[in-house]
Computed example of a mutant assay.
Amino acid sequence: MNRQRAQEIAASPVMANVTCDGVPVYIQHVNEHNETVRVYPLDEPENEQNVPLSSLEEH
């Protein structure tokens, strides 16, 4: 996923169908400096993690 699209999804009030390694996630924040995003699995909101933008896929 590209940075611009990830930022659009993070800022949108509408939930997008995004996965990280096949797991549905919610994008919290996009870090422009190192091309990572802060996400958490939809079923585990306490399990926040930073992942590379390249690991995200929009469906």
Rank of each mutant, 00 (worst) to 15 (best):
residue 10 A to D: 02
residue 10 A to C: 03
residue 1 M to H: 03
residue 43 D to H: 14
residue 41 P to M: 11
residue 20 C to E: 10
residue 16 A to T: 05
residue 44 E to M: 13
residue 4 Q to M: 02
residue 51 V to R: 11
residue 3 R to E: 13
residue 21 D to Q: 12
residue 6 A to H: 01
residue 8 E to K: 05
residue 20 C to Y: 09
residue 30 V to A: 12
residue 39 V to S: 06
residue 11 A to M: 07
residue 8 E to G: 00
residue 6 A to P: 01
residue 11 A to L: 10
residue 51 V to C: 08
residue 54 S to G: 05
residue 22 G to E: 08
residue 11 A to D: 12
residue 41 P to G: 10
residue 57 E to G: 02
residue 55 S to H: 06
residue 26 Y to Q: 14
residue 1 M to N: 01
residue 18 V to Y: 04
residue 33 H to Y: 13
residue 30 V to I: 14
residue 46 E to Y: 11
residue 4 Q to R: 07
residue 48 E to T: 15
residue 20 C to R: 05
residue 20 C to K: 03
residue 32 E to R: 14
residue 7 Q to Y: 01
residue 53 L to V: 05
residue 48 E to A: 11
residue 22 G to L: 08
residue 7 Q to C: 04
residue 4 Q to I: 04
residue 35 E to I: 01
residue 40 Y to M: 06
residue 40 Y to Q: 09
residue 26 Y to G: 01
residue 12 S to G: 10
residue 37 V to L: 05
residue 16 A to S: 13
residue 41 P to V: 10
residue 38 R to C: 13
residue 2 N to I: 02
residue 5 R to Y: 02
residue 38 R to E: 14
residue 16 A to C: 04
residue 54 S to A: 12
residue 37 V to I: 05
residue 13 P to T: 08
residue 41 P to Y: 09
residue 50 N to Q: 13
residue 49 Q to K: 15
residue 58 E to N: 01
residue 30 V to F: 11
residue 3 R to F: 00
residue 8 E to N: 03
residue 48 E to N: 06
residue 39 V to A: 05
residue 45 P to R: 09
residue 20 C to T: 04
residue 49 Q to V: 12
residue 31 N to P: 07
residue 38 R to P: 00
residue 55 S to T: 13
residue 54 S to W: 02
residue 16 A to P: 00
residue 44 E to W: 06
residue 16 A to Y: 10
residue 8 E to H: 02
residue 55 S to Y: 05
residue 26 Y to I: 15
residue 17 N to C: 06
residue 16 A to W: 11
residue 22 G to K: 08
residue 18 V to P: 03
residue 56 L to H: 04
residue 11 A to V: 00
residue 51 V to Y: 08
residue 50 N to G: 03
residue 7 Q to E: 11
residue 50 N to V: 10
residue 55 S to N: 05
residue 33 H to C: 11
residue 40 Y to N: 14
residue 51 V to K: 09
residue 32 E to Y: 03
residue 52 P to T: 11
residue 4 Q to K: 09
residue 57 E to P: 00
residue 2 N to G: 05
residue 4 Q to C: 00
residue 35 E to T: 08
residue 10 A to V: 03
residue 13 P to M: 07
residue 25 V to Q: 11
residue 51 V to Q: 09
residue 31 N to F: 15
residue 5 R to N: 00
residue 8 E to C: 00
residue 33 H to T: 13
residue 19 T to V: 15
residue 59 H to K: 12
residue 9 I to R: 02
residue 28 Q to H: 14
residue 58 E to T: 12
residue 27 I to C: 05
residue 16 A to Q: 12
residue 47 N to V: 04
residue 51 V to S: 08
residue 46 E to D: 15
residue 43 D to W: 07
residue 15 M to F: 03
residue 38 R to Y: 11
residue 33 H to K: 15
residue 46 E to P: 00
residue 13 P to F: 07
residue 30 V to Q: 10
residue 50 N to L: 15
residue 3 R to L: 09
residue 15 M to W: 01
residue 34 N to S: 11
residue 15 M to I: 12
residue 14 V to C: 01
residue 39 V to C: 06
residue 37 V to S: 10
residue 52 P to D: 13
residue 52 P to R: 12
residue 51 V to M: 08
residue 39 V to Y: 07
residue 22 G to Y: 09
residue 36 T to Y: 09
residue 12 S to L: 04
